[in-house]
Simulated scan of single mutants.
Amino acid sequence: MFDWFKSERRERQKKVRQDRKQLEVRARRFLKSYLEADEVRKPEFYRAVEDISKKCRPPDLDFSQPDLDDGQIAEATSKAAMQMVLERENRRVGDFVTDACATVAVAYNRAAGVYKADADMQELGTAAVHLLTMATSYTNAQKE
């Protein structure tokens, strides 16, 4: 049983190292740009993270399953967003959307509890979650 806990902890540490390498700089840049943006430009940030979040929702998960937990959904969504970051980096496309993808990945890893033992990434993840929450609220208000 203790081996299971150790392997889970090692897996989480591996994800944190990968996120620091692949996502941290991009997510920080995106969040900093958001904070520096004026009110006219902020909706662009909201739309970007909301669109990416929707694109990254795992289509193969059956959300009606009673045993499916939020952590599984968050991890699958984060994994899809990470894949988008890597694909966009390989194609060398614009930073704005790639940074938004990184921010979404960090937000969902925070929601999945990946950053439990890393205060800096947990703080970054919390900021990303807040932005994603504001984006969802903004988008829903625009529909009404």
Rank of each mutant, 00 (worst) to 15 (best):
S53G: 14
K14T: 07
R29L: 06
E24L: 10
V25I: 13
E8M: 09
D38C: 02
R12L: 10
Q18N: 12
L35Y: 08
F30T: 09
P43S: 06
K42P: 03
A48G: 01
L23D: 05
R9H: 11
R17P: 00
R28H: 07
P43T: 06
L35Q: 15
R26Q: 11
A27N: 08
A37Y: 03
K42T: 07
L31M: 07
F45G: 07
F30Y: 15
A48M: 11
V49R: 05
E44V: 10
D38K: 04
R26E: 10
V49M: 06
K14L: 01
E11N: 13
S33H: 14
E36S: 13
L35R: 15
E39N: 12
K54T: 12
Q18V: 09
V25R: 14
R41P: 00
D51N: 15
Q18C: 02
R10C: 02
P43V: 04
E24A: 08
R47L: 11
K54G: 12
R28I: 00
R26P: 00
S53D: 15
R41E: 14
Q22T: 06
V16S: 02
E8D: 13
F30H: 10
R41L: 15
R20Y: 07
V40E: 14
D19W: 09
K32M: 03
R9A: 13
R9G: 01
R29W: 00
F30V: 08
S53I: 01
R9S: 08
R10G: 02
E39C: 01
F30S: 08
P43C: 05
A27P: 05
L35F: 05
L31R: 04
Q13F: 03
E8A: 12
E39M: 03
R20C: 02
K42N: 10
Q22V: 08
K42R: 15
R29D: 10
R28Q: 11
R28S: 03
Y34S: 04
V40G: 09
L23H: 04
I52S: 06
R17L: 09
E39V: 06
R41C: 05
R12E: 11
Q22G: 00
